[in-house]
Design a protein around this nucleic acid. Structure first.
Lengths: 219, 219
DNA sequence: TTCCGGATCGACCGGTCGGTCGGGTGATGC
DNA sequence: GCATCACCCGACCGACCGGTCGATCCGGAA
């Protein structure tokens, strides 16, 4: 690990910051080059093009998120506890890398980014994300079956969790206006973590005297 | 109300659809013109430029959201009930206008869209949004003080609600992958509404035997 | 010393961007 | 008949876009 970043890592850092703030179409390679302290041509030595740079940035952030979540997606912990601690770890990861949540949310919301064909690296990113979401789904599923969680619809609950957790760290100026505080100040992050975890626990756990109640299934 | 849309409305419709899908920077005026069935120059007869078109689109969608929510932001209903019914109405509005949630979320997440100065109309949009969020904050505040809601931190809960509700209708292909179903099919919308409202009710309401318990305040 | 290949750069390319301009067209009022 | 006006268009502009090319620099292996 060099104390000064390699040019490639520097480009990835700059790209991550810019793509998170302005989205794929809003970022120009000239700006990436300038903020990286390189000539524009040099970018194309390290990456095949803008599309690959974007894909590599997404892969890096998704791997960061996966690594933060992985310890809690095993079968060793009780589902509700694993869910709570996993979300805590996720929030810590978002707080440590302020661009992650935005980039994640962008990747989930954005569509039709590439006019022609998309770079092959993007599929790797999609796969990392898909596996992560599948593992998380499985965790919720286990929680419901074990009776720790309410009889929620698993896919919709997945979506709820994503929006609930990620948006907090992706909201921009309006979010700070609502909070009346910097989005990533340590006090704000601590409070947010408590509030989100409480929300999830109260919102999803099964009522106390609800051990072996059968689920409603009105399909 | 003419049965055929005026050119201005047609442009707004096309712009709304495109901006929601690809963001401000990802949309070109040529494309807006073509999909509107007009020459590019004609757009500049109805709007001062791309920036104003974007601002007008945002204003229109924000007003739609405000109108859907307004009936439940009065002081006449019990806060928790008003919150639940308001979120229901919001979801109905999102379902009716599939671009609204994306555009809302984009406006909240996006930053530094305009390189130069931003069009004055954007301030009107920001103000509509700010008022809406203030009213919603007040509703939650009342709910907490009335003891109907848990002793949550109001701003963070605001953020939670935004992410929780809006993301469901803004998620793209990956959202449909998770659901295994079209995002706006009537059955998916119905199920989602039930799940979200349940999540909010269970997550925010005060425990039954918790009438006049004092809040913890460990600051 | 020579050579080589990674890294960097400035100059340049075709194409697209938002926006302008001048003119055309068809209703409306006089 | 004529001026006015909203509306619409094709042609055009300078700026910027992503990307290419050939030259140069430089550290390490031979």
């Amino acid at each position: 690990m060099p104390s000064v970043l390699s040019s490639r890592d520097k480009i990835l850092d700059v790209g991550e910051s810019l793509f998170a703030r302005r989205g794929y179409a809003g970022v120009g390679m000239r700006e990436v080059a300038q903020l990286s302290g390189l000539g524009k041509s040099s970018l194309f030595h390290h990456f095949r093009g803008k599309g690959q740079l974007y894909a590599e940035v997404r892969i890096r952030t998704l791997k960061r998120i996966r690594d933060a979540l992985a310890p809690f997606l095993t079968l060793e912990t009780a589902p509700l506890e694993a869910l709570e601690e996993g979300m805590c770890a996720l929030i810590d990861s978002f707080a440590e890398h302020p661009t992650s949540a935005r980039l994640l949310l962008r990747g989930l919301v954005e569509e039709e980014i590439f006019s022609g064909e998309s770079p092959p690296e993007l599929e790797e990113a999609e796969q990392i994300l898909a596996e992560l979401l599948d593992d998380l789904s499985e965790l919720i599923e286990r929680g419901v079956k074990a009776g720790e969680l309410r009889a929620v619809a698993v896919p919709d609950t997945m979506q709820s969790l994503i929006g609930l957790v990620a948006y907090h760290f992706a909201s921009g100026a309006m979010g700070e206006r609502i909070l009346g505080e910097a989005l990533f100040s340590s006090s704000a992050v601590r409070r947010r973590k408590r509030e989100v975890v409480n929300f999830i626990r109260e919102g999803l756990r099964a009522p106390r005297s609800d051990r072996d109640e059968e689920r409603e299934d009105p399909t």
